[in-house]
Design a protein around this nucleic acid. Structure first.
Ligand code: MN
Ligand code: MN
Ligand code: ZN
Ligand code: ZN
Lengths: 146, 146
DNA sequence: CGGCTAAATGAAATCGAATTTCAATTTCAA
DNA sequence: TTGAAATTGAAATTCGATTTCATTTAGCCG
């Protein structure tokens, strides 16, 4: 990692070490704040802006990308996997993924037709996850009381 | 319109009249600020928060929905048309649309498989529009000078 | 090993869109 | 016409994102 960054003109620091490590451990769709909290468990002197800047850096060097699900907070996603879309549960705000190769294949010709040069393709499905559906059902079981 | 709102428990006001009219005239992907400016041309006493609230209202009654292209500003889109996705040009920030019925048809089974209850489906393609590609090409034509 | 310079850091300040507050005004059903 | 509820406009607030700035540090060179 140190070497990888060096080739891009960046230095390694203890904070960066912790932040990178934490990011690749914690999994995907993490927010700055979530990662910040996690990082502070290793070293509670790391600043929020340092975490933010390093998340940006991870994106700049191509190891992650920002994900915006329209709820006002940016999440960060490793780019090490196949193209995928996101399910976003509006109740528990949990993000899950789905495979999207076929969709992407269908989308490219559409873009070509309009001579649009594609950088990124995003698909997001908002709704209610299985777990939250059950919870809601439970709630609906007891309006008899009123 | 007045009647439609009445059934939903809302009142009609001169400001609302102007705002609704302007929204349905101006076309899609309008931001609060854009609509605000437009509205002020009819009546420069209308407040920004009133425009904002009425845009929200238009969404609440199902006549529009928010569109978030990840550039930090919310746009508003009428819901009177078939499902469509968005091309977002990262250079000129212009938004164009593409038909998406087939995509949606492919996406629903994917959601079903995970027992995810779908509210909305969004597809966004970021990149460079035809016009901006030409501009960039022109710029690239003259590195001979250096 | 020092010395140096660009990069990195942390705290605080700033930004900007979104949203809320609140006092005053207006709508509209009765 | 009257009163309750909805609406409005201006200002204040919120909150995540981003910048500023003084200080520290990494890593290269001798
Ligand atoms: Mn993901
Ligand atoms: Mn649209
Ligand atoms: Zn859920
Ligand atoms: Zn463009």
């Amino acid at each position: 990692m140190r070497e990888f960054l060096k080739t891009k003109g960046f230095k390694m620091t203890p904070q960066r070490e912790i932040i990178f490590r934490a990011f690749f451990e914690i999994g995907d769709h993490v927010t700055v704040d979530e990662l910040y909290r996690r990082v502070r468990k290793s070293d509670n002197s790391v600043g929020y802006s340092t975490v933010w800047r390093n998340l940006k850096l991870i994106c700049r060097v191509g190891l992650a990308e920002e994900v915006n699900l329209g709820d006002g907070v940016t999440r960060y996603d490793r780019v090490t996997r196949e193209p995928h879309g996101h399910f976003y549960c509006v109740q528990c705000k949990q993000v899950t993924e789905f495979e999207m190769e076929e969709i992407v294949a269908k989308l490219h010709p559409i873009a070509d037709k309009q001579l649009f040069h594609v950088d990124t393709i995003k698909c997001e499905i908002s709704g209610v996850c299985e777990t939250c559906q059950k919870k809601t059902d439970d709630d609906d079981d007891t309006p008899l009381v009123s």
